[in-house]
Design a protein around this nucleic acid. Structure first.
Lengths: 219, 219
DNA sequence: CCGTTAATCTCGTAA
DNA sequence: TTACGAGGTTAACGG
């Protein structure tokens, strides 16, 4: 990894065009050729960048980074205040927990969260347009399709609606009810769901973890 | 901005929990207190990070970064290979061009792209669930609602469908036809649109720019 | 390789 | 402040 602090101007020409006026910034050149231009603020997203695979040509105080699609990042350097290189090696990578997949496992394990007498049919129930998160049967034996989100927004309701439309064409399943389950459900999503006869269910992640069988945990 | 190259392990406890084993990495500490942990590969996203506003406490080879929500990033340093600080000042910021807003302006200016005899009613035509990109009248005087995307995907068709449902409740407008306009329309989106009687229109950004009245340009 | 979906999304804008 | 849509989204996963 090479780190350069320099006054520079940057132009990106690709999916859009963008320009950064001359100012002091950090240029990070990674081992895979990718280049990141960072300012001393903002969040983790660089002001401008080129993703790998790409090629960096340095000539006459100007860096030209090109990728296979012909997108270009042109960096013009005026004053170089710092320039150092470092060998880091390959990173062992990140281990995560707490995302939608885990919510799905937890709800499948504790399907009674939907109500007493519910039975799990399966997780990732396949359909022509993709898998439904959970398919279950209610105490009366009717099919119930569950869409799980960390944050329940309008797109998730649309997604569940498409699944329900398809599942209800299957005479072995119909009628299929929908349940929209999320840690947090936005008001607009809730309104749309209710308008379509879809039940909303707020999941308590920590409470469900508390019920969790530790042998089955993802981590 | 402070740049540290060090062997470190990192733990994030917040919206999820995540762990990085001990390995050499770049630690970037920005002026606003935010911290980025970068490896020598991957793309512009750091392996782990804390967004501002947050506070960094350094004690005994361990950095603890905490934000207002109580999320924590704990970095344990083993070997510090590099440590330097640099004053960059406030960045003047980025200038962009080529996005959806510009497509909307261009199509409104050249409404005949929809067909001969079309007339613009207005851009950003307001409805209860948000503005429709363009409302127009066809040569017969019927209302036409246009949804514009850079890339036409299934979500955009859903969005236009919701607008059409609402607009068609207005007796002064109904019946309202839909046009889904984009630089590129994905097959699934096209299929869904056709299924719903929505016309698809592929926009040629460069050709429309060529027609553009230069006095009205955004840039 | 393509399509779909999630994301500690980020980032802007408007109500 | 919140909500919503767009993103050079990026990244992961499955067919």
């Amino acid at each position: 990894m090479r780190l350069v602090i320099a006054r520079c101007s940057v132009d990106y020409i690709g999916r859009l065009t963008a320009h950064l006026p001359m100012a002091p910034r950090l240029l990070m050149v990674k081992n895979d050729g990718s280049v990141l231009v960072h300012a001393d603020g903002g969040s983790y997203k660089p002001l401008n960048w080129m993703s790998p695979p790409c090629r960096l040509v340095e000539a006459d105080g100007q860096w030209t980074v090109t990728n296979k699609a012909g997108e270009q990042l042109v960096i013009t350097l005026e004053d170089v205040l710092h320039d150092s290189s470092h060998e880091l090696g390959i990173d062992p990578g990140l281990v995560k927990d707490g995302v939608e997949a885990h919510l799905q496992v937890l709800l499948a394990e504790h399907i009674e969260t939907l109500g007493d007498g519910y039975r799990l049919v399966r997780r990732e129930y396949p359909t022509a347009i993709g898998p439904v998160d959970i398919l279950a049967r209610d105490p009366a034996g009717s099919a119930v399709a569950v869409e799980i989100k960390r944050r329940g927004e309008i797109d998730g309701v649309e997604q569940l609606t498409r699944y329900l439309e398809l599942l209800n064409r299957d005479p072995l399943l119909a009628p299929v009810r929908g349940v929209f389950a999320a840690q947090e459900i936005k008001p607009q999503a809730r309104t749309l769901a209710q308008d379509r006869g879809i039940e909303c269910l707020v999941l308590d992640y920590n409470a469900m973890r508390g019920l969790d069988n530790s042998a089955d945990r993802l981590f």
